[in-house]
């Protein structure tokens, strides 16, 4: 009888290392926690099936984000138009952005909901670029690795994405 634990071990280690990041990424792209958790699980399930079929993965982190991004695209294709409630949440500003003081280390649940509401109104590919850069804290080079886009395209998308987001917030 032949068993192979090493592949499973590596796979679970990659989950331990990247689960939080992938969940966070999914959350800020789809603005729904339950959907984000399910999506994260599905990302890792698909990756397991890929390696179990004998395929190699050169860069696991970039691969996970690519799978997640494809899943998010499919999610929006199937999803009906964004609910009015979510649009209204984005427009309503019960607190001013400036009210979040310099001493704040994290945001409350409602504050996060408002930020994600604005993000949801930001169209792709700017949303992906802004989330990877500011939510995930990735460098330009890391984003290039994940998205496969050029350095130049990534820089421009981040720059324009932030400008558009600021415009959305100030409307």
């Amino acid at each position: 009888m032949v068993e192979d634990n090493s592949l499973q071990k590596q796979f679970i280690e990659s989950y331990d290392q990247f689960a939080d990041d992938i969940f966070k990424h999914c959350f800020f792209r789809v603005s729904d926690k339950e959907v984000a958790i399910d999506m994260m699980q599905e990302v890792f399930t698909k990756v397991w099936k890929y390696v179990d079929d004998g395929n190699d993965i050169h860069n696991i982190r970039a691969f996970l984000y690519k799978v997640a991004n494809n899943m998010i695209i499919d999610y929006y294709r199937k999803k009906k138009s964004v609910s009015l409630d979510k649009i209204e949440e984005g427009r309503e500003v019960p607190f001013e952005i400036e009210d979040v003081g310099a001493d704040e280390k994290i945001l409350s649940e409602s504050e996060v909901k408002i930020i994600s509401g604005f993000l949801e109104k930001l169209e792709e590919p700017y949303k992906q670029a802004v989330v990877l850069r500011y939510i995930e804290g990735m460098s330009i080079d890391e984003i290039v690795e994940v998205t496969g886009e050029s350095n130049n395209n990534v820089s421009v998308r981040i720059n324009r994405g932030i400008k558009k987001l600021k415009k959305l917030i100030n409307e």
């Binding site: 966070k24 958790i37 001493d103 280390k105 945001l107 500011y134 995930e136 804290g137």
Partner: peptide
């Protein structure tokens, strides 16, 4: 309070959203 930029708020939002131990 010092005003936060949008970029800083996004970074804060990123730090504020985590999976609970039980969920993970």
């Amino acid at each position: 309070n010092k005003k936060r930029t949008v970029e800083e708020l996004l970074e804060l939002a990123g730090k504020s959203v985590v999976l609970s131990d039980a969920e993970k």
